[in-house]
């Protein structure tokens, strides 16, 4: 994994660099939007960490360039949490995720990993969560090296959950990803899919499990 960090505060940039290198991959730091843009066009990066206030403008102005890159790197914006409009504008402009400053180091790493997981699923059709491997191309799942047999619907549930692993997937969204609009869904069908899937994961000794968040949805978590 190769990570690009755009942060004008050298001390913070070096902390971010060492955090990323300890847990995710090689990181390069740049202080200005212009330098970062040049690097993005010259090299391939998997993840881009963008700060907002930079000497030559708002870090969000990098987002249009990022959107045009193929393959497109996953983007994580470091933003102020006190202004929800800031967060919305970051996401609207194409950021995959945001982390409010100041952040817990664990939180930043978890978010970065989640973004990479989604990105990897989109770009390669393949991703991992704990000892669970999900392969979208072959429509299969593996726990460690053992193939896990999962029926079509349950696999769709698992795909949705792994895409947003560590965050809640709302029930409505999960239903929408498993059933077409025309299909009649009985109220507890989704619950039975989830409980069968949960059982499969447990029996396969998976260290990931599905938590029910009452009134909201489900969440894939590592135990």
């Amino acid at each position: 994994m190769r990570i690009l960090i755009v942060e004008d505060d050298r001390e913070l940039a070096s902390s971010l660099k060492s955090m990323m290198e300890d847990s995710i991959g090689i990181a390069d730091t740049f202080e200005t939007i212009a330098d970062a843009e040049a690097a993005l066009l010259a090299f391939k990066f998997d993840l881009v960490l963008i700060d907002r206030n930079l000497p030559d403008g708002d870090g969000l102005s990098l987002l249009p360039t990022l959107r045009q890159l193929r393959p497109r790197p996953a983007t994580l914006v470091l933003t102020a949490l006190d202004d929800p409009i800031d967060i919305v504008s970051a996401l609207d402009k194409g950021a995959d995720e945001y982390v409010g400053k100041p952040f817990e180091p664990m939180e930043l790493i978890a978010r970065a990993r989640a973004v990479l997981r989604r990105y990897s699923l989109d770009e390669t059709g393949y991703t991992q969560f704990g000892n669970l491997t999900f392969d979208l191309t072959n429509r299969s799942a593996m726990i460690d090296d053992n193939a896990l047999s999962v029926p079509r619907r349950e696999l769709a549930v698992l795909e949705s959950l792994i895409r947003r692993a560590g965050r809640v997937v709302q029930r409505d969204n999960l239903e929408a990803s498993v059933y077409s609009i025309d299909e009649e869904i009985e109220s507890n069908v989704l619950d039975s899919h989830v409980s069968r899937l949960r059982k499969r994961l447990r029996e396969g000794n998976c260290n990931a499990t599905i938590r029910t968040i009452r009134g909201i949805g489900y969440m894939l978590v590592q135990e």
């Binding site: 505060d9 001390e11 913070l12 902390s15 971010l16 955090m19 470091l78 102020a80 400053k101 100041p102 952040f103 817990e104 180091p105």
Partner: peptide, 10 residues
Amino acid sequence: RTPLTKLRLK
């Protein structure tokens, strides 16, 4: 926020 973030990381 920037110094707070640095403080937290340190």
